[in-house]
Amino acid sequence: HDVTIHAGDKTIHVHGASEEFLRIIEQAKRDGIHEEELLRLIEELVK
């Protein structure tokens, strides 16, 4: 999957995102996670 995530003034493109990655991001959004926290989460996941 190619994913584009908008968080605040940043746009992150993730190529080859796994289903698990997508679920984590969707869950985080539903939980109302702060955008900066979401960015950190994404950066950890894509290392």
Rank of each mutant, 00 (worst) to 15 (best):
E44D: 14
K47E: 08
L45C: 04
L41R: 05
G32K: 07
I12F: 04
H1D: 09
E19K: 03
D31N: 13
L41Y: 06
H6K: 14
H1S: 13
G32W: 03
E44P: 02
T4G: 03
H13A: 05
H15E: 07
E43S: 11
H15P: 07
R30T: 12
E36S: 10
L38I: 08
G16H: 10
D9N: 14
R40W: 08
E35S: 15
V46D: 04
V3P: 03
L22F: 07
K29Y: 11
V14H: 03
E19S: 04
V14E: 02
H34L: 15
K47V: 13
Q27P: 00
D2M: 13
L22Q: 10
D31I: 09
K10H: 12
H6T: 14
E36I: 09
H13M: 06
V14F: 08
I33D: 02
V14T: 03
H15K: 12
H6W: 00
E35N: 12
L45G: 03
L39E: 08
A7D: 07
R40Q: 12
A28Y: 04
D9F: 00
G32L: 07
G8R: 01
L39F: 09
G8I: 01
F21N: 07
G8D: 07
R30P: 01
E44K: 11
T4H: 11
H34C: 07
A7G: 07
E43W: 03
H15D: 05
I33T: 08
H15R: 11
E19N: 08
E36L: 11
I42P: 00
D2Q: 10
R23L: 13
S18W: 07
I33Q: 08
L38N: 00
H1M: 14
L41G: 00
K10Q: 10
T11R: 08
H34P: 14
I5R: 02
E43N: 10
V3L: 12
K29I: 13
I25H: 00
E44Y: 07
I33P: 02
L38K: 00
A28P: 00
L22S: 03
S18K: 06
L39I: 14
D2C: 15
E20M: 01
I33S: 06
G16I: 07
S18Q: 07
H13E: 09
H34W: 10
E20I: 02
E44F: 09
E43Q: 12
R30C: 05
I5M: 02
Q27N: 11
G16Q: 10
I12N: 03
I24L: 13
T11E: 12
E20G: 06
K47F: 04
D31W: 01
K29N: 10
K29W: 10
I25R: 00
A17E: 03
G16S: 07
E43Y: 04
G16A: 07
T4Y: 01
R23W: 06
D2P: 13
H15A: 10
K10F: 05
I25V: 13
H1I: 15
D9Q: 10
S18R: 03
K47Y: 02
H6G: 10
L45R: 03
H15S: 11
E35G: 15
E37F: 05
F21A: 14
E26G: 06
R30V: 11
L45N: 03
I42L: 12
Q27I: 10
V14C: 03
H6Y: 00
A7R: 02
L41E: 01
T4K: 09
I5V: 09
I12R: 01
A7Y: 14
H34Q: 13
I33W: 14
D31T: 11
D31Y: 01
E19C: 03
L45Y: 14
V3G: 04
A28F: 05
H6P: 08
E19R: 01
L22Y: 04
A28L: 11
L22R: 03
A7V: 15
R23D: 13
Q27V: 08
H34G: 14
I12Q: 02
R40H: 12
E19I: 04
G8S: 06
L38G: 00
T4S: 07
E19T: 03
